[in-house]
Design a protein around this nucleic acid. Sequence first.
DNA 1: TCAAAATTTGAAATCGCTTTGAATGATCCA
DNA 2: TGGATCATTCAAAGCGATTTCAAATTTTGA
Lengths: 339, 339
Amino acid sequence: MRLKDLAEHLGLSQTTVSRALNGYPEVNEATRLRVAETAARLGYRPNASALRLATGRSGAVGLVLRGAEELGPHMSEFLAGMGGRMATEEIDILVTTVDSYADELAAYRRIAASQKVDAIVLHSPKLVDERVKLLKDLDIPFVLHGRTNIGETVAWLDIDNTGAIERATTHLLDLGHRRIALLNGLKGRTFAEHREIGYLAALSARGVAFDPALMGNSNFTDEVAFRYAQSMLELRPRPTAFIAGSMMTALGVFRAIRQAGLVLGKDVSMIAHDDVFPYLNADNMYPTMSTTRSSIRQAGTRVAELILQILGGKKIEEVHELWPVELVLRESTGPAPAS
Amino acid sequence: MRLKDLAEHLGLSQTTVSRALNGYPEVNEATRLRVAETAARLGYRPNASALRLATGRSGAVGLVLRGAEELGPHMSEFLAGMGGRMATEEIDILVTTVDSYADELAAYRRIAASQKVDAIVLHSPKLVDERVKLLKDLDIPFVLHGRTNIGETVAWLDIDNTGAIERATTHLLDLGHRRIALLNGLKGRTFAEHREIGYLAALSARGVAFDPALMGNSNFTDEVAFRYAQSMLELRPRPTAFIAGSMMTALGVFRAIRQAGLVLGKDVSMIAHDDVFPYLNADNMYPTMSTTRSSIRQAGTRVAELILQILGGKKIEEVHELWPVELVLRESTGPAPAS
DNA sequence: TCAAAATTTGAAATCGCTTTGAATGATCCA
DNA sequence: TGGATCATTCAAAGCGATTTCAAATTTTGA
């Protein structure tokens, strides 16, 4: 069913039908009603490609993922959040997976040149990230989830990683812990660097020396976390507290603690960063897990909203949001054991 | 940069340039080279919308997700698998999220009517699933991940859930277990029903009575699994073995076992179904986890391949794949404790 | 050597929509 | 009553590619 067919069916011109459906003012109200009713009855929908060609808008936003690493639980939550918001505007999300960083850059070039999307969501930035420059050169609107390239004008939404980890660390220090391990994200990623800054700031504020052996940088998988925690627990004196970068990490640390014959919340404390996965709940762990909490799904929803605003004409220098992170204390944190 | 610009730049007609780029035979080899070189140098890419309109192919496949529940770790792995394969063909994945089942049906209608995708991946089928009929009516090619509507001609790829759980159950019976709990997926979902069939078959083959109190149907979250396992472990006689529907479920069961002061692999055995998440490894658990294993990411890759075959003209009645599932025994399974 | 065949190129139609600019008829007011 | 204004409608021109059909040029073969 094309517009032409519908128009013939109605005995009207394509022009009028198109206008009627798109809410232009210069069409008789009775006609509009008749058109709307018939279109609905016949299940007419404009052909997406034609519509895009005519309007120059693709009705989609792009998301490029390095498949293996990035399409994990964090991303799927974020995606769910974005999807919810975009769905209400009937905007699609175009997911492109690539294998390498070079491929990622090429993917942006391709997407931009072929005009497949109206905007892009950029994510997992490094402190200095050339993707920003590329997207600017390509002149395609984008919102960054995270922060990068201090000083450069970019639309972004980020959580206060520094503040979160600083508070968590300080809290552990308050409880008497002095050997506090940090299982952080990959070196170079902005969020990981920010967390490190918060961690170091808290330590130095109390005059506690930083021990590089107590910091790990890796992906957030329970496996790597297990290994890290295991070897850290063999140190003497061993750490009495862990700050885990994600709930997945927390699971690994958890196992290592138990395997070492220690009790979480008593011998060893832990605070994990909780991105709020619906299937992995800090409140339902045993013992319940103290966390720094920020819903990554909500962030996805909001990023979608920001994209819509930018497409609506809002200036990117006005689009910045730094979300506070709450510290929720539960059973996994306790006073440092007497040494 | 439009085709027209490129053509002018080259002093050729759009026709010739288009042909040269698309590998038509009737163009001089020297010309073709010149065109290809210039196009590459200038970064020309055909406008996706125009190309789609002209060819009638959208170059995308659709995936409709009920956001909240479905965009979890399983789906993101599957998506990563699909994405990898589709990327090599420069086919996009269009992710649409919806809130309800009714919305899902409406989404398919919309997608089909607006011709946004060339094919659809249908997933998470129920034993009887009206979405199949809808997609057939809409006359849009699709591949089903899973199975449904026995007897109906559909292209599908599924794993042998029945066989997997039957073997797992049988193995536990062999170890002397008689009270075996099954934490299954949602009632009505094909895979869950298939697993139940395998479970019941194994029990009845050994003359072990089925106890409804030992079966749970729910989503695969560690939280629900924890609750189920917790209450099952309060039964007397209590279950001595668990079959967990996923690795997330296993984590919950794990915690419940430990909370009850029991030891996994000794007091209680467990076999979990492992979809092979890169961030949650059965080999690295403590104790290591016995599993029925089948990579959902590989399934995604293969489903993408099947879609390409169908788009290439392969008949859907020739597209069926039933994948065997391996049983990998590790430390979480042991002989039933003397009662 | 010259008509026929093969090679190479291009003009214009097409895909299905939006939107510009013009036309039609109805309404208004002096 | 008649010119100006308003409200509706439509024909046709894009949007940027592919593809049909025709034309120009070269090559072939008797």
